[in-house]
C-alpha cells in the first residue's frame, strides 16, 4: 500500500496541500518566489507533486519539473531553497501521520528531481 493511500488518499491530500503551501508562503526564505504566482494553479500543481512523491496516482516527469521551475531559476532559486521545500514536505507528512522512514523515502524521491528543478 502506498504512503499516499496509508495517509488517507485524496481527501487528506487536499488538506495537506493547503498546509504545505501555507508553510511555503509564510517562510521568508522562499515566499518571494510565489509573489506573482497564480495560487489556484500552483495549489493544483503542488497537490500533484505531493501525490507523486507519496506514490499516489499522479503523472509527474522530470521534464515537467524542469519546465515548471525555469522562471524561478532566473529569479535565483538554488539548493538552499530546494532544502526548504524538502523540510516543509517532511513536516507536513509527519503532521499527517507519516513515520521517519516514510519521510526519508519521500525526501529521497524529492531529492531525485533536484537537478531538474534547478535546471542542471
Amino acid at each position: 500500500m502506498s504512503l499516499y493511500a496509508r495517509l488517507g488518499g485524496e481527501p487528506a491530500f487536499q488538506t495537506a496541500v493547503d498546509i504545505f503551501y501555507r508553510r511555503m508562503l509564510s517562510d521568508d526564505r522562499v515566499a518571494r518566489f510565489f509573489d506573482d504566482v497564480d495560487m489556484e494553479g500552483q495549489i493544483a500543481k503542488q497537490k500533484a507533486f505531493l501525490t507523486f512523491v507519496t506514490g499516489g496516482p499522479a503523472e509527474y516527469t522530470g521534464q515537467d519539473m524542469r519546465a515548471a521551475h525555469a522562471e524561478l531559476v532566473k529569479l535565483g532559486i538554488a539548493d538552499e531553497h530546494v532544502d526548504v521545500v524538502i523540510e516543509h514536505l517532511g513536516a507536513v507528512l509527519t503532521e499527517l501521520g507519516a513515520d521517519a522512514k516514510d519521510v526519508g523515502e519521500v525526501a529521497a524521491l524529492a531529492e531525485s528531481v533536484r537537478d531538474q528543478v534547478l535546471g542542471r
Partner: peptide
C-alpha cells in the same frame, strides 16, 4: 490575488 493569499494564509481552505 492579494485577497486570496491573505484569506488563505489566515486559514481559509483553498478549495
Amino acid at each position: 490575488h492579494k485577497l486570496r493569499r491573505k484569506l488563505f494564509l489566515a486559514g481559509m481552505p483553498s478549495a
